[in-house]
Design a protein around this nucleic acid. Structure first.
Lengths: 212, 212
DNA sequence: ATCAAAAAACCGTACTGTATGGTACGGTAA
DNA sequence: TTACCGTACCATACAGTACGGTTTTTTGAT
């Protein structure tokens, strides 16, 4: 039933789906680059090709388009962050690998732009930040906490609240380059910079959670 | 010489100074609440009283007003963050006190709004983020690093890069409530929440930097 | 010290030109 | 028939300008 409902049943519907997808893509790029206020429907239509009227036939308002864009962007973000925690190796190796993958993903220009957009629009669209948090930070915290909980059970790290420990490791990872990217202090990463960030985070984290 | 230049020499100048101050105050409130795009000069003039033309006589453009507002806001922020590191007590007590004061100051609604504004406007006004970083995060990092360096010299904590250690402690402090305020997940702090954040940060930090 | 005149600052209101979300419509394409 | 196109249009918003009249401050004369 569900698969039938999801299946486009005509050329027409397939076309509309494809067009909607293109709209969302162009709109995403614009919102990410210029923010909500700085994005105009005319510019979207111009980039997209076709007429403005068509764009309006897909989205009755700018706000609805923005909602759809954010929904999509945060879902994509979530998909990207759904790390497959590879648990081969000892705790330090596993956590280091996790941190590397996590940091690499949240420091891409797209991720920085998304985070900026979220923070910017939080007051105008109050649900935005919450949805993002559920699909971003909370997700990674819980993934990591799951692994960490197992490590506690096996006596590989000291007993602690796994979720708090996860938050701390993530917080440590974010306290270097990520913050400077977000505030525009640096525009891009130097080679090896993420590795330094991770080394530092891991150093204190492993000391702080060494088995007792 | 400098004090002479700063001293209003006439009723006229004093009046202009006072008027400029009022403009900056009203504009600050508006930019913080509505962002750059959401702030209109008409609204500023209406709140301020008097005529729009007068406002234009003080600032020839919205952008110049914004620059002045940001300059002022970041200076005020710096003044607030110029913590007097009270070094009585042991290292843990001192650091805890520092963290408490720091977190209290960066989680006020004004500070959150400022950070949001900075992040929002970084692409449109690229210097904004850098200036903020110099007057905010870097300042506190260096204050803390100075203290930490002394503690290293006295063998009270293990040898490490004091600036990196400072960044980490601050990063740990910011990984809880601050992030959730910034993203709008929570609108205000529960009683005791900051203390929890600090306890957690201090716990891992003191373990991680225990003397070897 | 006082006062009148001049200069500067300010007010309220109207206006300008541009921009933007959104609408309308005749003609064409699928 | 439906979807789309290109173009024109609408109403509103907003940074910024203009202008005649009023208020405040300064200046210069007495």
């Amino acid at each position: 039933m569900a698969s039938v409902a999801d299946c486009p049943t005509s050329r027409r519907e397939a076309r509309r789906e494809s067009r909607r997808d293109a709209i969302l893509q162009v709109a995403s790029d614009s919102f990410l680059e210029f923010g909500y206020a700085g994005t105009t429907m005319s510019a979207i239509a111009a980039t997209l090709g076709g007429s403005k009227g068509t764009l309006w036939s897909y989205y009755p308002s700018k706000e609805l388009l923005f909602n759809d864009v954010l929904d999509r962007l945060t879902r994509d973000f979530r998909a990207r962050l759904t790390l497959i925690l590879k648990t081969q190796g000892d705790v330090e190796t596993t956590l280091r690998r996790f941190c590397a993958e996590f940091l690499r993903k949240v420091t891409t220009p797209e991720s920085i732009a998304l985070y900026r957009l979220i923070i910017s629009e939080t007051s105008r669209f109050p649900e935005v930040g919450r949805i993002f948090y559920e699909r971003g930070p909370r997700l990674t915290q819980h993934q990591l906490a799951g692994y960490f909980s197992g490590a506690i059970d096996r006596g590989l790290v000291r007993k602690a609240d796994p979720l708090q420990a996860a938050r701390q490791l993530i917080g440590l990872c974010l306290s270097g380059s990520h913050q400077r990217l977000l505030t525009g202090v640096i525009d891009e990463l130097e080679p090896g910079q993420l590795d330094e960030d991770i080394d530092r985070a891991m150093d204190i984290f492993m000391r702080g959670y060494a088995p007792e």
